[in-house]
């Protein structure tokens, strides 16, 4: 079916301010940050924020920016807050346009960026919030998102998320985080009584859960392809 050809998805993308790109201090800090968690940054997509930046009116400048980021293992995929001329040059360099884009060259009250030069993740995917108890036989799937349940999850219920799962109550049913394969997803609960927990396809059934953690607030993570349960 044609409707299957185009699907929406929500991603977390880093945003780098264009003005800082050529600053040696930024270069240093970014390299430092990436060294701390190289896996997270490897081939990570980046959007260049052109807010109140007069430059970047030529295609070659975007190519240069791409090269700089490439050296840091990052991949430039688009721009935001671009004025029309910048947008055109960016498109020439094969970059996508991310909302918002400024219609005017500059805002009326320019403000100094107060944040540090560390690249900031853009708005995260929306979290699915469930405030009622998840009853036996119910299945909840948070597609492309985290799942937060502020009540108990009953035995025989199943909660699934592509991201993390948080249960502020007893987890008695099944919880499957990182259902889309995200090995960094975690499961948090106020009371572990689960029938099954799974992260990115690795699972433990109730019997295999450490008995000394039963009934306690824990988090479950995938470490070296093994599910580990630690007391919160």
């Amino acid at each position: 079916m044609a409707s299957n050809l185009v699907q929406g998805a929500v991603f977390t993308v880093m945003v780098v301010r264009a003005g800082m790109l050529r600053d040696p201090a930024f270069d240093h800090e970014l390299a430092d940050q990436i060294q701390r968690s190289p896996r997270f940054f490897l081939n990570a997509p980046v959007v260049l924020d052109l807010k109140q930046v007069a430059e970047f009116a030529h295609q070659s400048e975007f190519v240069e920016a791409r090269e700089i980021l490439r050296r840091h293992t990052l991949t430039l995929i688009g721009v935001q807050n671009a004025v029309p001329a910048q947008l055109e040059a960016a498109a020439g360099a094969g970059l996508a346009s991310f909302a918002p884009n400024a219609p005017q060259p500059s805002r009326s009250t320019p403000r100094e960026p107060t944040r540090s030069a560390t690249p900031m993740p853009a708005a995260a995917a929306k979290t699915r919030l469930v405030t009622q108890p998840v009853r036996s036989g119910t299945q909840i799937y948070a597609r492309g998102a985290d799942l937060v349940v502020t009540a108990a999850v009953g035995a025989g219920a199943e909660i699934i998320a592509d991201g993390n799962i948080h249960v502020y109550g007893a987890l008695r049913g099944r919880a499957l985080a990182g259902a889309g394969g995200d090995v960094d997803a975690r499961i948090f609960c106020s009371r572990l009584e689960a029938e099954l927990v799974s992260i990115a396809g690795h699972y433990l059934v109730s019997e295999q859960l450490p008995p000394e953690q039963q009934g306690f607030p824990v988090q479950i993570a995938l470490v070296d392809e093994r599910l580990t349960v630690t007391r919160n």
């Binding site: 108890p133 998840v134 009853r135 036996s136 036989g137 119910t138 009953g154 035995a155 025989g156 219920a157």
Partner: peptide, 11 residues
């Protein structure tokens, strides 16, 4: 457990 299921169905 069955009661839990029924409460879910009622909702």
């Amino acid at each position: 457990r069955d009661s839990d299921r029924i409460i879910g169905l009622l909702a």
